[in-house]
Design a binder for these strands. Sequence first.
DNA 1: TAGATTGTTAATCGATTAACAATC
DNA 2: TAGATTGTTAATCGATTAACAATC
Lengths: 209, 209
Amino acid sequence: MKDIFKISISRVTLRRLADYLCILLQLPVERFKQISSAQFAKIIGSKPSRVRQDFHYFGGFGKPGHPYDVGILLSELKQVFGLDDRIGILIVGATPAAEMLLNNSMLKTLNIHIAGIVDFNRRKIDKDFHGHKIRAPKDVPALKADNNIKIGVITCEEPEPAVKLLVENNIRGIWNLSPRHVSAPKGFHIRYENITGGLLHLLYDLIEL
Amino acid sequence: MKDIFKISISRVTLRRLADYLCILLQLPVERFKQISSAQFAKIIGSKPSRVRQDFHYFGGFGKPGHPYDVGILLSELKQVFGLDDRIGILIVGATPAAEMLLNNSMLKTLNIHIAGIVDFNRRKIDKDFHGHKIRAPKDVPALKADNNIKIGVITCEEPEPAVKLLVENNIRGIWNLSPRHVSAPKGFHIRYENITGGLLHLLYDLIEL
DNA sequence: TAGATTGTTAATCGATTAACAATC
DNA sequence: TAGATTGTTAATCGATTAACAATC
Protein backbone atom coordinates (compact mmCIF):
# COMPACT_ATOMS: atom_id res chain seq x y z
CA MET A 1 0.00 0.00 0.00
CA LYS A 2 2.08 2.84 -1.31
CA ASP A 3 -0.58 5.54 -1.32
CA ILE A 4 -1.32 7.64 1.70
CA PHE A 5 -4.47 9.02 0.12
CA LYS A 6 -7.65 7.01 0.25
CA ILE A 7 -8.45 6.73 -3.42
CA SER A 8 -11.97 6.09 -4.57
CA ILE A 9 -12.24 2.35 -5.05
CA SER A 10 -15.27 0.80 -6.72
CA ARG A 11 -17.63 -1.43 -4.75
CA VAL A 12 -16.89 -4.44 -6.98
CA THR A 13 -13.14 -4.12 -6.56
CA LEU A 14 -13.45 -3.75 -2.81
CA ARG A 15 -15.70 -6.74 -2.63
CA ARG A 16 -13.21 -8.80 -4.60
CA LEU A 17 -10.36 -7.67 -2.37
CA ALA A 18 -12.37 -9.00 0.56
CA ASP A 19 -12.80 -12.29 -1.31
CA TYR A 20 -9.06 -12.47 -2.06
CA LEU A 21 -8.34 -11.99 1.62
CA CYS A 22 -10.77 -14.72 2.67
CA ILE A 23 -9.37 -17.11 0.06
CA LEU A 24 -5.81 -16.56 1.26
CA LEU A 25 -6.89 -17.25 4.82
CA GLN A 26 -8.41 -20.58 3.74
CA LEU A 27 -5.36 -21.67 1.74
CA PRO A 28 -3.15 -24.44 3.14
CA VAL A 29 -0.19 -22.31 4.24
CA GLU A 30 2.45 -25.01 3.76
CA ARG A 31 1.56 -25.57 0.13
CA PHE A 32 1.11 -21.93 -0.82
CA LYS A 33 3.97 -19.66 0.11
CA GLN A 34 3.53 -17.80 -3.16
CA ILE A 35 0.58 -17.33 -5.48
CA SER A 36 0.45 -15.85 -8.97
CA SER A 37 -2.35 -13.71 -10.36
CA ALA A 38 -3.15 -16.63 -12.70
CA GLN A 39 -3.57 -19.12 -9.84
CA PHE A 40 -5.64 -16.61 -7.92
CA ALA A 41 -7.87 -15.97 -10.90
CA LYS A 42 -8.48 -19.67 -11.32
CA ILE A 43 -9.59 -20.15 -7.72
CA ILE A 44 -11.94 -17.19 -7.69
CA GLY A 45 -13.16 -17.56 -11.27
CA SER A 46 -11.72 -14.31 -12.60
CA LYS A 47 -8.89 -13.15 -14.87
CA PRO A 48 -5.24 -12.59 -13.96
CA SER A 49 -5.32 -9.03 -15.29
CA ARG A 50 -8.32 -8.21 -13.14
CA VAL A 51 -6.57 -9.51 -10.04
CA ARG A 52 -3.52 -7.38 -10.84
CA GLN A 53 -5.66 -4.35 -11.63
CA ASP A 54 -7.49 -4.71 -8.32
CA PHE A 55 -4.13 -4.73 -6.50
CA HIS A 56 -2.89 -1.91 -8.70
CA TYR A 57 -5.39 0.54 -7.16
CA PHE A 58 -3.31 0.19 -4.01
CA GLY A 59 0.01 0.40 -5.83
CA GLY A 60 0.39 -3.35 -6.31
CA PHE A 61 1.35 -5.94 -3.74
CA GLY A 62 4.16 -7.76 -5.56
CA LYS A 63 7.41 -7.44 -7.48
CA PRO A 64 7.70 -7.97 -11.24
CA GLY A 65 9.04 -11.38 -12.17
CA HIS A 66 7.75 -13.18 -9.07
CA PRO A 67 4.40 -14.46 -7.89
CA TYR A 68 2.89 -12.71 -4.89
CA ASP A 69 4.24 -13.65 -1.48
CA VAL A 70 1.24 -14.96 0.46
CA GLY A 71 2.46 -13.50 3.75
CA ILE A 72 2.95 -10.03 2.29
CA LEU A 73 -0.34 -10.21 0.41
CA LEU A 74 -2.19 -11.16 3.59
CA SER A 75 -0.66 -8.34 5.54
CA GLU A 76 -1.37 -5.76 2.80
CA LEU A 77 -4.98 -6.88 2.34
CA LYS A 78 -5.59 -6.82 6.08
CA GLN A 79 -4.24 -3.29 6.13
CA VAL A 80 -6.61 -2.27 3.33
CA PHE A 81 -9.54 -3.15 5.57
CA GLY A 82 -8.05 -1.66 8.72
CA LEU A 83 -7.59 -5.06 10.34
CA ASP A 84 -4.29 -4.26 12.02
CA ASP A 85 -6.20 -3.30 15.15
CA ARG A 86 -8.47 -5.84 16.79
CA ILE A 87 -11.98 -4.86 15.69
CA GLY A 88 -15.02 -5.32 17.89
CA ILE A 89 -18.58 -5.76 16.67
CA LEU A 90 -21.78 -5.39 18.62
CA ILE A 91 -24.69 -7.66 17.77
CA VAL A 92 -28.18 -6.29 18.23
CA GLY A 93 -30.69 -9.11 18.58
CA ALA A 94 -30.15 -12.52 20.20
CA THR A 95 -31.34 -14.35 17.10
CA PRO A 96 -30.30 -17.30 14.93
CA ALA A 97 -28.36 -14.86 12.71
CA ALA A 98 -26.47 -13.77 15.82
CA GLU A 99 -25.63 -17.37 16.58
CA MET A 100 -24.43 -17.84 13.03
CA LEU A 101 -21.97 -14.97 13.54
CA LEU A 102 -20.80 -16.41 16.87
CA ASN A 103 -20.09 -19.60 15.00
CA ASN A 104 -18.31 -17.94 12.05
CA SER A 105 -14.69 -19.07 11.94
CA MET A 106 -13.67 -16.39 9.42
CA LEU A 107 -14.37 -13.60 11.89
CA LYS A 108 -11.94 -15.08 14.42
CA THR A 109 -9.30 -15.47 11.72
CA LEU A 110 -9.77 -11.84 10.74
CA ASN A 111 -9.16 -10.73 14.32
CA ILE A 112 -12.75 -9.45 14.54
CA HIS A 113 -14.37 -10.33 17.85
CA ILE A 114 -17.91 -10.17 19.08
CA ALA A 115 -17.83 -7.61 21.86
CA GLY A 116 -21.38 -8.13 22.99
CA ILE A 117 -24.92 -9.16 22.20
CA VAL A 118 -27.72 -6.75 23.05
CA ASP A 119 -31.44 -7.39 23.01
CA PHE A 120 -34.46 -5.16 23.62
CA ASN A 121 -36.52 -7.95 25.11
CA ARG A 122 -36.27 -7.59 28.89
CA ARG A 123 -36.91 -11.27 29.47
CA LYS A 124 -33.82 -12.15 27.43
CA ILE A 125 -31.48 -9.75 29.21
CA ASP A 126 -28.86 -11.40 31.47
CA LYS A 127 -29.71 -14.80 30.03
CA ASP A 128 -27.01 -16.92 28.42
CA PHE A 129 -26.79 -17.06 24.64
CA HIS A 130 -24.30 -19.68 23.48
CA GLY A 131 -21.75 -18.59 26.03
CA HIS A 132 -22.47 -14.88 25.84
CA LYS A 133 -24.51 -12.98 28.40
CA ILE A 134 -27.25 -11.00 26.67
CA ARG A 135 -26.85 -7.31 27.51
CA ALA A 136 -29.32 -4.47 27.97
CA PRO A 137 -29.24 -1.47 25.62
CA LYS A 138 -28.07 0.68 28.54
CA ASP A 139 -24.85 -1.40 28.74
CA VAL A 140 -23.69 -0.39 25.27
CA PRO A 141 -21.60 2.65 26.30
CA ALA A 142 -19.54 0.53 28.69
CA LEU A 143 -19.13 -2.23 26.12
CA LYS A 144 -18.02 0.28 23.52
CA ALA A 145 -15.45 1.85 25.81
CA ASP A 146 -13.76 -1.50 26.39
CA ASN A 147 -13.88 -3.16 23.00
CA ASN A 148 -13.03 -0.88 20.05
CA ILE A 149 -16.51 -1.46 18.62
CA LYS A 150 -16.62 -0.20 15.05
CA ILE A 151 -19.67 -1.98 13.71
CA GLY A 152 -23.15 -2.83 14.94
CA VAL A 153 -24.93 -5.77 13.38
CA ILE A 154 -28.70 -5.71 13.20
CA THR A 155 -30.01 -9.26 13.32
CA CYS A 156 -33.57 -8.59 14.51
CA GLU A 157 -36.53 -8.29 12.12
CA GLU A 158 -37.30 -4.68 13.04
CA PRO A 159 -34.24 -2.49 12.40
CA GLU A 160 -35.47 0.92 13.64
CA PRO A 161 -34.79 0.64 17.40
CA ALA A 162 -31.46 -1.02 16.68
CA VAL A 163 -30.34 1.83 14.43
CA LYS A 164 -31.45 4.33 17.05
CA LEU A 165 -29.33 2.55 19.67
CA LEU A 166 -26.27 2.42 17.40
CA VAL A 167 -26.59 6.07 16.40
CA GLU A 168 -26.94 7.17 20.03
CA ASN A 169 -23.73 5.34 20.82
CA ASN A 170 -21.95 6.72 17.76
CA ILE A 171 -21.26 3.27 16.33
CA ARG A 172 -20.76 4.44 12.76
CA GLY A 173 -20.77 1.17 10.85
CA ILE A 174 -24.19 -0.46 10.61
CA TRP A 175 -24.49 -3.89 9.08
CA ASN A 176 -28.17 -4.48 8.46
CA LEU A 177 -29.07 -8.17 8.22
CA SER A 178 -32.77 -7.41 8.77
CA PRO A 179 -35.19 -7.62 5.84
CA ARG A 180 -36.03 -3.90 5.90
CA HIS A 181 -34.18 -0.89 4.52
CA VAL A 182 -33.33 1.77 7.03
CA SER A 183 -31.55 5.12 7.05
CA ALA A 184 -29.13 6.87 9.40
CA PRO A 185 -27.64 10.35 9.77
CA LYS A 186 -24.69 11.59 7.73
CA GLY A 187 -21.39 10.11 8.87
CA PHE A 188 -22.92 6.69 9.50
CA HIS A 189 -22.37 3.90 7.02
CA ILE A 190 -25.15 1.41 6.47
CA ARG A 191 -24.92 -1.79 4.51
CA TYR A 192 -28.12 -3.67 3.72
CA GLU A 193 -27.28 -7.33 3.43
CA ASN A 194 -30.17 -9.00 1.68
CA ILE A 195 -29.17 -12.62 2.03
CA THR A 196 -32.12 -13.87 -0.03
CA GLY A 197 -30.86 -11.78 -2.97
CA GLY A 198 -28.16 -14.33 -3.66
CA LEU A 199 -30.66 -17.16 -3.53
CA LEU A 200 -32.96 -15.38 -5.98
CA HIS A 201 -30.08 -14.75 -8.35
CA LEU A 202 -29.36 -18.46 -8.32
CA LEU A 203 -33.00 -19.24 -9.04
CA TYR A 204 -32.79 -16.95 -12.07
CA ASP A 205 -29.69 -18.79 -13.32
CA LEU A 206 -31.62 -22.06 -13.16
CA ILE A 207 -34.38 -20.91 -15.50
CA GLU A 208 -33.78 -22.35 -18.92
CA LEU A 209 -35.38 -21.69 -22.26
CA MET B 1 -42.36 -9.65 -19.09
CA LYS B 2 -42.93 -9.33 -22.81
CA ASP B 3 -39.89 -11.24 -24.01
CA ILE B 4 -39.92 -14.97 -24.47
CA PHE B 5 -36.14 -15.06 -24.87
CA LYS B 6 -33.95 -15.06 -21.81
CA ILE B 7 -31.81 -12.02 -22.50
CA SER B 8 -28.43 -11.67 -20.90
CA ILE B 9 -28.97 -9.61 -17.77
CA SER B 10 -26.06 -8.28 -15.79
CA ARG B 11 -25.38 -9.51 -12.28
CA VAL B 12 -25.90 -6.06 -10.76
CA THR B 13 -29.27 -5.58 -12.45
CA LEU B 14 -30.46 -9.00 -11.38
CA ARG B 15 -29.32 -8.35 -7.85
CA ARG B 16 -31.24 -5.06 -7.80
CA LEU B 17 -34.35 -6.75 -9.18
CA ALA B 18 -34.14 -9.13 -6.23
CA ASP B 19 -33.87 -6.14 -3.90
CA TYR B 20 -36.87 -4.45 -5.55
CA LEU B 21 -38.89 -7.60 -5.00
CA CYS B 22 -37.92 -7.84 -1.34
CA ILE B 23 -38.70 -4.17 -0.78
CA LEU B 24 -42.15 -4.52 -2.30
CA LEU B 25 -42.85 -7.50 -0.07
CA GLN B 26 -41.96 -5.42 2.99
CA LEU B 27 -44.09 -2.44 1.99
CA PRO B 28 -47.34 -1.77 3.91
CA VAL B 29 -49.82 -2.91 1.26
CA GLU B 30 -52.63 -0.56 2.31
CA ARG B 31 -50.50 2.56 1.89
CA PHE B 32 -48.76 1.54 -1.32
CA LYS B 33 -51.04 0.45 -4.11
CA GLN B 34 -48.82 2.25 -6.60
CA ILE B 35 -45.15 3.20 -6.58
CA SER B 36 -43.22 5.44 -8.96
CA SER B 37 -39.64 4.90 -10.06
CA ALA B 38 -38.74 8.02 -8.04
CA GLN B 39 -40.22 6.65 -4.80
CA PHE B 40 -38.53 3.33 -5.43
CA ALA B 41 -35.17 4.97 -6.06
CA LYS B 42 -35.45 6.88 -2.81
CA ILE B 43 -36.10 3.78 -0.74
CA ILE B 44 -33.29 1.76 -2.26
CA GLY B 45 -30.85 4.66 -2.64
CA SER B 46 -30.70 4.64 -6.42
CA LYS B 47 -31.92 6.77 -9.35
CA PRO B 48 -35.32 6.66 -11.03
CA SER B 49 -33.77 6.13 -14.46
CA ARG B 50 -31.84 3.15 -13.19
CA VAL B 51 -34.97 1.58 -11.77
CA ARG B 52 -36.73 2.07 -15.10
CA GLN B 53 -33.73 0.79 -17.06
CA ASP B 54 -33.62 -2.35 -14.87
CA PHE B 55 -37.30 -3.00 -15.63
CA HIS B 56 -36.73 -2.12 -19.28
CA TYR B 57 -34.55 -5.21 -19.80
CA PHE B 58 -37.76 -7.18 -19.31
CA GLY B 59 -39.84 -4.85 -21.47
CA GLY B 60 -40.98 -2.61 -18.61
CA PHE B 61 -43.55 -3.35 -15.94
CA GLY B 62 -45.73 -0.23 -16.18
CA LYS B 63 -47.70 2.08 -18.44
CA PRO B 64 -46.53 5.59 -19.41
CA GLY B 65 -48.21 8.31 -17.34
CA HIS B 66 -48.84 6.19 -14.28
CA PRO B 67 -46.74 4.90 -11.39
CA TYR B 68 -46.21 1.15 -11.24
CA ASP B 69 -49.03 -0.93 -9.85
CA VAL B 70 -47.56 -2.75 -6.84
CA GLY B 71 -49.61 -5.89 -7.47
CA ILE B 72 -48.52 -6.15 -11.10
CA LEU B 73 -44.92 -5.33 -10.23
CA LEU B 74 -44.86 -8.05 -7.58
CA SER B 75 -46.25 -10.61 -9.95
CA GLU B 76 -43.83 -9.67 -12.75
CA LEU B 77 -40.80 -9.70 -10.49
CA LYS B 78 -41.78 -13.05 -9.00
CA GLN B 79 -42.07 -14.39 -12.53
CA VAL B 80 -38.58 -13.11 -13.37
CA PHE B 81 -37.15 -15.35 -10.66
CA GLY B 82 -39.36 -18.32 -11.47
CA LEU B 83 -41.32 -18.00 -8.24
CA ASP B 84 -44.68 -18.94 -9.71
CA ASP B 85 -44.05 -22.51 -8.67
CA ARG B 86 -43.40 -23.30 -5.04
CA ILE B 87 -39.64 -23.75 -4.79
CA GLY B 88 -38.02 -26.19 -2.40
CA ILE B 89 -34.54 -25.89 -0.98
CA LEU B 90 -32.43 -28.54 0.70
CA ILE B 91 -30.14 -27.53 3.52
CA VAL B 92 -26.92 -29.46 3.95
CA GLY B 93 -25.63 -29.09 7.49
CA ALA B 94 -27.65 -28.76 10.70
CA THR B 95 -25.80 -25.58 11.69
CA PRO B 96 -26.60 -22.09 13.02
CA ALA B 97 -26.73 -20.85 9.41
CA ALA B 98 -29.39 -23.49 8.75
CA GLU B 99 -31.38 -22.26 11.73
CA MET B 100 -31.09 -18.71 10.41
CA LEU B 101 -32.68 -19.84 7.15
CA LEU B 102 -35.46 -21.70 9.02
CA ASN B 103 -36.14 -18.43 10.79
CA ASN B 104 -36.03 -16.24 7.66
CA SER B 105 -39.44 -14.69 7.07
CA MET B 106 -38.61 -13.53 3.53
CA LEU B 107 -38.27 -17.10 2.31
CA LYS B 108 -41.81 -17.92 3.41
CA THR B 109 -43.11 -14.76 1.75
CA LEU B 110 -41.34 -15.74 -1.47
CA ASN B 111 -43.05 -19.15 -1.45
CA ILE B 112 -39.70 -20.85 -0.97
CA HIS B 113 -39.87 -23.67 1.53
CA ILE B 114 -37.24 -25.70 3.28
CA ALA B 115 -37.81 -29.22 2.04
CA GLY B 116 -35.31 -30.86 4.32
CA ILE B 117 -32.15 -30.65 6.38
CA VAL B 118 -29.44 -33.20 5.77
CA ASP B 119 -26.33 -33.84 7.82
CA PHE B 120 -23.38 -36.17 7.39
CA ASN B 121 -22.91 -36.69 11.10
CA ARG B 122 -24.58 -39.98 11.98
CA ARG B 123 -25.22 -38.92 15.54
CA LYS B 124 -27.32 -36.00 14.32
CA ILE B 125 -29.46 -38.00 11.92
CA ASP B 126 -33.10 -38.48 13.00
CA LYS B 127 -32.66 -35.91 15.75
CA ASP B 128 -34.92 -32.84 15.89
CA PHE B 129 -33.58 -29.54 14.65
CA HIS B 130 -35.96 -26.68 15.44
CA GLY B 131 -38.96 -28.68 14.36
CA HIS B 132 -37.29 -30.44 11.44
CA LYS B 133 -36.05 -34.00 11.53
CA ILE B 134 -32.43 -34.17 10.39
CA ARG B 135 -32.18 -36.50 7.41
CA ALA B 136 -29.47 -38.83 6.17
CA PRO B 137 -27.79 -38.24 2.81
CA LYS B 138 -29.47 -41.38 1.49
CA ASP B 139 -32.89 -39.76 1.99
CA VAL B 140 -32.22 -36.99 -0.51
CA PRO B 141 -33.66 -38.73 -3.61
CA ALA B 142 -37.00 -39.24 -1.84
CA LEU B 143 -37.03 -35.65 -0.55
CA LYS B 144 -36.26 -34.34 -4.00
CA ALA B 145 -39.03 -36.35 -5.62
CA ASP B 146 -41.64 -34.84 -3.30
CA ASN B 147 -40.55 -31.23 -2.97
CA ASN B 148 -39.48 -29.57 -6.24
CA ILE B 149 -36.01 -28.99 -4.80
CA LYS B 150 -34.12 -26.59 -7.04
CA ILE B 151 -31.37 -25.42 -4.71
CA GLY B 152 -29.08 -26.97 -2.16
CA VAL B 153 -27.65 -24.75 0.53
CA ILE B 154 -24.24 -25.61 1.97
CA THR B 155 -24.09 -24.40 5.55
CA CYS B 156 -21.28 -26.62 6.85
CA GLU B 157 -17.64 -25.52 7.01
CA GLU B 158 -16.42 -28.17 4.59
CA PRO B 159 -18.25 -27.86 1.25
CA GLU B 160 -16.80 -30.80 -0.70
CA PRO B 161 -19.01 -33.69 0.53
CA ALA B 162 -22.06 -31.44 0.31
CA VAL B 163 -21.35 -30.58 -3.32
CA LYS B 164 -20.80 -34.24 -4.08
CA LEU B 165 -24.21 -35.08 -2.58
CA LEU B 166 -25.98 -32.30 -4.48
CA VAL B 167 -24.34 -33.23 -7.79
CA GLU B 168 -25.22 -36.90 -7.35
CA ASN B 169 -28.83 -35.90 -6.84
CA ASN B 170 -28.77 -33.50 -9.77
CA ILE B 171 -29.69 -30.49 -7.64
CA ARG B 172 -28.36 -27.88 -10.01
CA GLY B 173 -28.40 -24.75 -7.89
CA ILE B 174 -25.75 -24.68 -5.19
CA TRP B 175 -25.76 -21.87 -2.67
CA ASN B 176 -22.43 -22.03 -0.88
CA LEU B 177 -22.51 -20.35 2.53
CA SER B 178 -19.32 -22.10 3.59
CA PRO B 179 -16.06 -20.17 3.76
CA ARG B 180 -14.38 -22.17 0.98
CA HIS B 181 -14.65 -21.92 -2.78
CA VAL B 182 -15.72 -25.04 -4.55
CA SER B 183 -16.41 -26.14 -8.11
CA ALA B 184 -19.03 -28.32 -9.78
CA PRO B 185 -19.57 -29.87 -13.21
CA LYS B 186 -20.99 -27.96 -16.16
CA GLY B 187 -24.72 -27.38 -15.89
CA PHE B 188 -24.55 -26.73 -12.15
CA HIS B 189 -24.74 -23.18 -10.85
CA ILE B 190 -22.72 -22.31 -7.78
CA ARG B 191 -22.94 -19.08 -5.82
CA TYR B 192 -20.33 -18.38 -3.20
CA GLU B 193 -21.91 -16.19 -0.53
CA ASN B 194 -19.08 -14.71 1.48
CA ILE B 195 -21.05 -13.06 4.25
CA THR B 196 -17.95 -11.50 5.82
CA GLY B 197 -17.28 -9.67 2.55
CA GLY B 198 -20.03 -7.18 3.37
CA LEU B 199 -18.63 -6.64 6.83
CA LEU B 200 -15.14 -5.99 5.45
CA HIS B 201 -16.54 -3.52 2.92
CA LEU B 202 -18.14 -1.63 5.78
CA LEU B 203 -14.84 -1.61 7.70
CA TYR B 204 -13.18 -0.06 4.66
CA ASP B 205 -15.85 2.65 4.52
CA LEU B 206 -15.08 3.53 8.14
CA ILE B 207 -11.41 4.24 7.52
CA GLU B 208 -10.90 7.97 7.38
CA LEU B 209 -7.98 10.08 6.34
C1' DT C 1 -57.22 17.70 -22.72
C1' DA C 2 -53.27 18.45 -19.54
C1' DG C 3 -50.35 16.29 -16.36
C1' DA C 4 -47.75 12.78 -14.89
C1' DT C 5 -44.67 9.33 -15.40
C1' DT C 6 -43.22 5.66 -18.08
C1' DG C 7 -40.36 3.51 -22.00
C1' DT C 8 -36.41 4.18 -24.75
C1' DT C 9 -32.40 6.20 -26.62
C1' DA C 10 -27.88 7.85 -26.75
C1' DA C 11 -24.13 10.22 -24.29
C1' DT C 12 -21.24 9.67 -20.47
C1' DC C 13 -18.95 7.38 -17.27
C1' DG C 14 -16.59 3.49 -15.27
C1' DA C 15 -14.88 -1.49 -15.29
C1' DT C 16 -12.66 -5.13 -17.75
C1' DT C 17 -9.32 -6.90 -20.58
C1' DA C 18 -5.28 -7.62 -23.40
C1' DA C 19 -0.89 -6.24 -24.37
C1' DC C 20 3.55 -5.21 -23.24
C1' DA C 21 7.16 -2.70 -20.89
C1' DA C 22 9.47 -3.07 -16.54
C1' DT C 23 12.18 -5.68 -13.55
C1' DC C 24 13.36 -9.04 -10.09
C1' DT D 1 21.61 -13.51 -18.15
C1' DA D 2 17.01 -15.54 -19.41
C1' DG D 3 12.59 -16.47 -17.75
C1' DA D 4 8.79 -15.40 -15.34
C1' DT D 5 5.39 -12.57 -13.85
C1' DT D 6 4.29 -8.23 -12.22
C1' DG D 7 2.85 -3.14 -12.89
C1' DT D 8 0.72 -0.09 -15.99
C1' DT D 9 -1.47 1.59 -19.98
C1' DA D 10 -4.92 2.10 -23.30
C1' DA D 11 -8.62 -0.09 -26.01
C1' DT D 12 -12.83 -2.29 -25.46
C1' DC D 13 -16.74 -3.35 -23.39
C1' DG D 14 -20.65 -2.61 -20.40
C1' DA D 15 -23.43 0.17 -16.91
C1' DT D 16 -25.32 4.49 -15.55
C1' DT D 17 -27.53 8.60 -16.39
C1' DA D 18 -30.09 12.37 -18.40
C1' DA D 19 -33.15 13.69 -21.70
C1' DC D 20 -37.22 13.42 -24.03
C1' DA D 21 -40.67 11.19 -26.85
C1' DA D 22 -44.59 8.28 -26.02
C1' DT D 23 -48.89 7.65 -23.92
C1' DC D 24 -52.26 6.56 -20.43
